[in-house]
Amino acid sequence: MGSTHFSRELRLLTPSHFENVFSNAIPAVSPFLTLLGKSNQCEHPRLGITVSKKNVRKAHDRNRLKRLIRESFRLNQHELPHIDIVVVVKRGLDEQSNEEIFRLLSKLWKKLAKRCDTSSSSQ
């Protein structure tokens, strides 16, 4: 097992990185989260997170959700293919417990990895 850090190269940093994923992405959807994935040219997956004030009002809730998403990604990154992922938080996620959020993310990482693997093999 490789290292489980979350360094700068594992992040989507610029608006163009996000726009690239939003165009023609493969979705993994739940009532509280949408994960969008698109293959990249890197040797590792990369993560971007969007949490709008409209969906999560309080800053400390937005920060908690982003921390949980990053931690879950950090622990699951070695099971993911080489894709760029944008996590879009929907209304109501801030009302879930940390355990429920981790469980949901774990399920969605697997779902997205499976969908991205099948789409890249069919091309």
Rank of each mutant, 00 (worst) to 15 (best):
V51A: 10
H82Q: 13
S52P: 00
K66Q: 09
C42I: 06
A59T: 07
K90L: 07
L104H: 09
H17W: 00
V88W: 00
S7V: 02
H17S: 15
R74S: 13
K53P: 09
F32V: 12
K53C: 02
S16F: 00
P27C: 00
S72D: 09
H17R: 02
L36H: 11
F6K: 01
A25Q: 07
V87Y: 01
S16T: 13
L65R: 02
R8F: 06
P27L: 02
K111C: 12
H60D: 05
N55M: 01
N98Y: 10
R57P: 04
R103L: 10
E99N: 09
V86S: 06
H60T: 14
R8N: 13
T50I: 14
V89L: 06
E43P: 05
L10W: 10
R64G: 14
F32G: 12
V86L: 06
P31H: 05
I101C: 11
E9P: 15
T50M: 09
E100S: 14
V29M: 03
R64I: 00
L33F: 10
N76R: 02
I26F: 00
S3V: 05
H44Y: 11
T34C: 08
E9T: 11
N63E: 08
A59C: 04
E43D: 15
Q41T: 15
C42W: 04
V86K: 03
V56C: 09
H44I: 07
P45S: 13
K58T: 02
S23D: 11
P45C: 04
V86T: 13
L65Q: 03
S30Q: 04
R64D: 12
R64M: 11
R67E: 10
K111M: 11
V87N: 08
E99A: 13
A28V: 00
R11G: 07
N76K: 07
D61M: 03
N98K: 10
F6G: 06
K111A: 11
F32D: 14
R57Q: 12
K107F: 07
